[in-house]
Design a protein around this nucleic acid. Structure first.
Length: 469
DNA sequence: CGGAAGTTGAG
DNA sequence: TCAACTTCC
């Protein structure tokens, strides 16, 4: 019997572990392990946990249709996995285990423990690279070192990708499936909790690989991404990040769909460039595991931030008195997602105008995002705080009001998430006058932009950064 | 994946 | 008066 261990790859299509296990033998079972405690320790969003569970549920049903039975288990932590897996291999007489590789420190440690355990039991292990366009450590400078600037990395990346890219694997098919003797396998309390994903989020983030694939295809065949992606009131982004984060979709599928509609121009498209950022930040964390441990990329980065819990709470709650910032923060807590332009604005606000520790922002995002991804989130926050690799320089400070006028000119996005301001005119909404704020019950700005900017510039200037870590 | 401030030159 | 451009942070 073969065992496919599903992790951050909750899909049937383009899933090498599943594909090769079934190629080898139809006698294959699937394993899902849920880690409620580990999820908490990692500070990930409770809604993300439910999102994962809902997708496990969906996948179990679809696996059934291709004749694959599923085992669902819950253990507290990654460290409990090895014992669980060896128990299961004994129970089901497993001869081979298939999975798609993970690259982050805790996940790698878990996988090494499991693999070590399986080797001792004389069980063959097959692992595949599947969740990124290219495996980490593929793209390196001629001296073998990691690129510390994105653009040359991307150029090399595209060159290598074009030379040899993998087309997505098909969904395995099976004929004459007989599920009559499929037992209900797994923890009963797991089955009961598989559909906790909040009702109001279903409309925004439909459950299932079929729905996610449809969303991807609809986006790629009809978008004006390069021109519209910066306007949060427009549905101009792909909005597939929650599915990518848990592997309901793969990056290679994204690329393949883009290639199908645009041809090779897709490699140089703005959207694929964003996919390459995802690979880049993962590769960076693979190369520098300290990034996963709350360390700055730049060794000498400014790392002594203001202590101001009240200001942090105002930011979290979306009550800073800066309409675009507040709209973004409220979208995050309501929807588990924030438009990327606004992410940059709220992050810059926290790091460079409030001078609060970027790790607070990183943790808050992780605690609410459905698409919370260790490497991308860390990369984004270190970009915003000027502490990261190829980060925004310290003097590049977003003016939240200017950004608002530029990217939400008529205030549509603001009104959607800051209902206090629905009646304020498009001209006034970006920075309402004190009387208007008072009348609407909307707070005064919690910081003075001009002095905050000047303060930040001098603070960073007194703490010079080297160009790389 | 800026912004502020200063300069220039057209109208 | 104000784009468009330059420079510095």
């Amino acid at each position: 019997m073969n065992l496919v261990w599903f992790r951050n790859d909750l899909r049937l299509a383009d899933n090498p572990a599943l594909y090769h296990a079934l190629q080898d033998s139809k006698n294959t079972v699937a394993l899902f392990v849920l880690y409620p405690k580990q999820h908490q320790v990692h500070g990930e969003a409770p809604n993300k946990y439910d999102f994962i569970q809902a997708h496990v549920n969906d996948l179990v049903e679809r696996l059934k249709k291709i004749g694959v039975q599923s085992i669902i288990k819950t253990v507290p932590m990654f460290s409990n996995t090895a014992a669980l897996v060896s128990e299961i291999t004994a129970q089901y007489a497993i001869k081979q285990v298939f999975f798609n590789a993970s690259y982050w420190p805790n996940e790698q440690q878990r996988d090494q423990q499991v693999v070590g355990c399986l080797k001792k039991l004389n069980i063959d292990v097959h692992s595949y690279d599947s969740n990124y366009l290219l495996p980490p450590a593929t793209v390196r400078k001629s001296d073998g070192s990691m690129y510390h600037v994105f653009t040359p990395y991307k150029n090399k990346f595209i060159e290598m990708l074009m030379a040899d890219y993998a087309l997505p694997l098909a969904v395995p098919q099976s004929e004459n499936v007989d599920t009559a003797n499929f037992a209900e396998v797994g923890d009963s309390e797991v089955a009961d909790s598989l559909n906790q994903f909040p009702e109001h989020l279903h409309a925004l983030w439909p459950i299932g690989e079929v729905a996610a694939t449809a969303r991807l295809k609809a986006f790629v065949t009809d978008n004006d991404y390069a021109d519209e992606r910066d306007f949060p009131a427009i549905d101009g982004t792909s909005s597939i990040s929650p599915y990518l984060a848990i592997g309901v979709l793969s990056a290679r599928q994204c690329l393949a769909v883009a290639l199908k509609t645009q041809g090779e121009a897709a490699f140089y498209s703005t959207w694929v460039s964003e996919l390459i950022w995802r690979d880049y930040y993962n590769d960076l964390m693979y190369c520098y595991p300290r990034l996963a441990k709350h360390r700055t990329f730049k060794a000498d980065a400014v790392d002594y931030w203001q202590h101001n819990p009240v200001l942090f709470q105002q930011w979290q709650a979306g009550k800073t008195g800066f309409p675009l910032v507040d709209a973004g923060m409220r979208q995050l807590s309501q929807e588990g997602w924030m438009h990327n332009r606004v992410r940059m604005v709220v992050a810059g606000f926290l790091c460079k105008l409030c001078l609060l520790d970027w790790r607070l922002g990183e943790a808050h995002f992780m605690a609410h995002l459905l698409d919370g991804d260790l490497a991308s989130n860390n990369g984004g926050w270190q970009w915003s705080s000027a502490t990261g690799c190829d980060a925004a320089p310290y003097f590049r400070i977003f003016n939240p009001t200017t950004q608002s006028k530029k990217f939400d000119p008529d205030g549509t996005y603001i009104r959607k998430y800051v209902p206090e301001l629905v009646a304020v005119s498009s001209k006034a909404i970006h920075d309402p006058k004190a009387e208007v704020r008072a009348a609407c019950g909307y707070p005064e700005p919690v910081i003075d932009y001009r002095s905050a900017r000047a303060n930040a510039l001098s603070w960073f200037k007194d703490n010079p950064l080297s160009e790389s870590g």
